[in-house]
Each structure stands twice: as structure tokens, then as C-alpha cells.
């Protein structure tokens, strides 16, 4: 029995360690999502939940960049989401020509991300000087400013909200944007800038003294994080086909925080797990009515007591680590042994 398990384990490692494993998984996922939407392989309700899962993965992994990897405490992520949602919606409803919105939708989503990134640039500036609790208050204020700004903008409906969007968000699109954001955030983490981000979390002064340009690194982290929050907002708006400012208040930001800390800080796998569990659990618990709003925070409290870093906390599944980085030390050792042997 144990030998069977062992060889199965070895086989599994061989499959997942293969260079083609992730790309083929992604292609298969995309084909499936396309087929599911096109030929109704999945119940529309299940499709809807899957799309929420995808959007929440984007939100959680982008917030994890700031809160988990960089160790700051941003509590205004929904503000960026709102910027993306409203930008993309205005584009598809009022700017783009009526018949072409279907084709121009990716552009609208991208624009939502870009405008949100621009706003992220502004929020990054206070982070140069402030840290911890004080930066948390800055992001909190930012979230409130965005919300009241939209509430007072009659052109986008004010507190009544904004509608008229077509249902352009489909399962393949959500899959595409989710994979793209996870991939780019992972690439950032496993780069020179990512190491800078991590070192800021560990010890900002030491990081600066080891030649890391901390301002530059913070700027990149905030811009990338808010870019993807904007993307998620744009997808969200075209899924619901109606948005209002109250959807993007502090409560929404708190939801994203719960996903991050549930799944685990400083981990891509954690963001995915956290977002998935949170979304699915909320749906399963729907019959409980209001009580689920009691149960979710309670779960979080229990988790924080027994596993304060979340499910994955600072750990990563191997297939989220770039292969070249995973093998780097081994390759160096092999080269060294060869050099030693020849000399």
C-alpha cells in the first residue's frame, strides 16, 4: 500500500514539476471555461459563482501584494475597485459605439485598470513617509473619499448608482484576467522588485541600506495592486450590470482583507484558496440568512487564534514558484561540482 502511495507521489511530483504542467493546465482551464459558457455545460448559477471566485482571486492576490508581501496595512482596496468599475462602465455605456461594446470590452477593462493604477500612484506617495497604523488610516480615508466623490457626481447617478451595462463579463474573460493577474503578480514577487517588496516587510531601514530604492519599490507595488483591483472592479460591474457607491465601501474592503488573511499572507496560493473558500462558503451559507454574517467573522477569529498567518501563511505551492527560480540553487551546485571535478 505504502509503495503504491509513494510511487503515486513520485508520479504526481513528476507531473507537477514538468515545465509544461502549468501552461497546459491553463489552456485546459480556458477551453473548459469557454465550453462551459458556450454550450452550457455548467448551470448558470454555478458559472456565476465561479466568476465571483475569479474576481475575488484577483482582488485578494492584488491586496496580498501590499498587505502580505510588503507588510503594509491597506484597508481601502474597494476604493480602487470602484475606480475601475466606474471607468469601465462609463466607457461601455456612454463612450463606445453601441454595436462594438462586445469587441471593445477588453479595452474598457484595461482602461479601468489603468485609471485605478493612476490613483494608486497618488496613494503610494503617503506610504513613503507613513507606515503601519497611519498608512492604514490614509487608505481608509481614501476609500471614503472615493465613495463620497461618486455619491456626489450626478453624471454617474450619484447615490442612485449607475446602470445600462451589458452583461459582458463571461466565464472565459474572468478566467483570462484571473490567470493574467495571478501570473503578473507572481512574476513581480519573484523578481528584483519583489525581493525589494519582501525586504521592506522584513526591515525597511535595512532594506534601504542594502541599496533597495524603497520608494520605487513601493510605487511599483501600489500601482500593480491598484491596477488589478481596477480590473476586478470592471469585471464586477459588467457582471452585475449595476453599480452604486455603497458596493465599494469599507465593508467590501473588509471582505477582501478577510480573504487575504484567511488564505494566508505573502502567498499566491493563499490568495486563491482564501478567495475561493470565502466566496463558496458565503454561497453555501446563504440559507442561514443574516447569521452567515456572524459565522464568517467568527471563523476568522478562530483562524487567527490557531493559525495567525492564515492557511498558507508565507508558504507557496511549488508550481507557483517559477521553475528557473526553484532550480536556481540546484543548477549552481551542479555547475560547481562539475567545476570541482574537472580541476
Amino acid at each position: 500500500m505504502s509503495t503504491v502511495l509513494k510511487s503515486a507521489g513520485r508520479g504526481w511530483r513528476e507531473i507537477t514539476g514538468n515545465r509544461a504542467f502549468m501552461p497546459s493546465l491553463i489552456v485546459a482551464g480556458f477551453v473548459f471555461s469557454f465550453a462551459a459558457a458556450q454550450f452550457e455545460l455548467l448551470d448558470p448559477y454555478v458559472q456565476l459563482i465561479l466568476m465571483y471566485v475569479g474576481i475575488n482571486i484577483i482582488l485578494a492576490s492584488s491586496l496580498n501584494l501590499i498587505n502580505g508581501y510588503m507588510g503594509e496595512f491597506s484597508v481601502g482596496h474597494a476604493g480602487f475597485m470602484a475606480v475601475g468599475a466606474y471607468t469601465a462602465s462609463i466607457l461601455t455605456v456612454s463612450v463606445f459605439p453601441g454595436g462594438a461594446t462586445f469587441l471593445l470590452f477588453p479595452l474598457a477593462v484595461l482602461a479601468g485598470g489603468l485609471v485605478s493604477a493612476l490613483v494608486g500612484l497618488v496613494v503610494a506617495v503617503p506610504s513613503f513617509k507613513t507606515r503601519g497604523d497611519y498608512l492604514a488610516i490614509v487608505t481608509l480615508a481614501f476609500n471614503m473619499i472615493i465613495k463620497s466623490l461618486i455619491e456626489n457626481l450626478e453624471a454617474v447617478g450619484g447615490p442612485r448608482g449607475f446602470l445600462g451595462m451589458e452583461k459582458l463579463t463571461t466565464l472565459p474573460w474572468v478566467f483570462f484576467w484571473t490567470v493574467l493577474s495571478v501570473w503578473i503578480i507572481r512574476n513581480l514577487v519573484y523578481s528584483n522588485f519583489g525581493r525589494g517588496v519582501l525586504s521592506i516587510r522584513e526591515d525597511e531601514i535595512a532594506s534601504d541600506l542594502m541599496s533597495v530604492n524603497t520608494r520605487h519599490v513601493k510605487l511599483i507595488a501600489f500601482v500593480v495592486s491598484s491596477f488589478f483591483a481596477g480590473i476586478a472592479g470592471a469585471l464586477f460591474a459588467h457582471l452585475l450590470q449595476y453599480i452604486n457607491p455603497r458596493m465599494f465601501d469599507i465593508l467590501k474592503s473588509t471582505d477582501i482583507l478577510i480573504m487575504v488573511y484567511l488564505g494566508g499572507i505573502g502567498s499566491i496560493a493563499g490568495s486563491i484558496i482564501g478567495a475561493t473558500i470565502f466566496t463558496v462558503l458565503l454561497e453555501i451559507l446563504r440559507p442561514m440568512g443574516l447569521w452567515r454574517m456572524v459565522l464568517m467573522p467568527l471563523l476568522l477569529v478562530i483562524l487567527m487564534i490557531f493559525r495567525p498567518r492564515g492557511i498558507m501563511g508565507l508558504r507557496e505551492f511549488r508550481w507557483f514558484v517559477p521553475l528557473h527560480d526553484f532550480l536556481a540553487v540546484r543548477l549552481w551546485r551542479r555547475k560547481k561540482e562539475a567545476a570541482d571535478a574537472s580541476s
Partner: peptide
């Protein structure tokens, strides 16, 4: 003042920050 949670290798790689020649 090491970066305690980072690997030994990453501690040294962080310090190469200014010498890496690729952009964001």
C-alpha cells in the same frame, strides 16, 4: 538586522538590487 523570514540566498540577492539591469 537580517531579513529573517527570507531565505539566506534572498538576503544576498536583495542586496544586488542596484546592480540588476532589467526594468519593471
Amino acid at each position: 538586522r537580517l531579513f529573517k523570514e527570507l531565505s539566506v540566498l534572498d538576503n544576498v540577492r536583495v542586496a544586488h538590487y542596484a546592480q540588476v539591469r532589467y526594468n519593471a
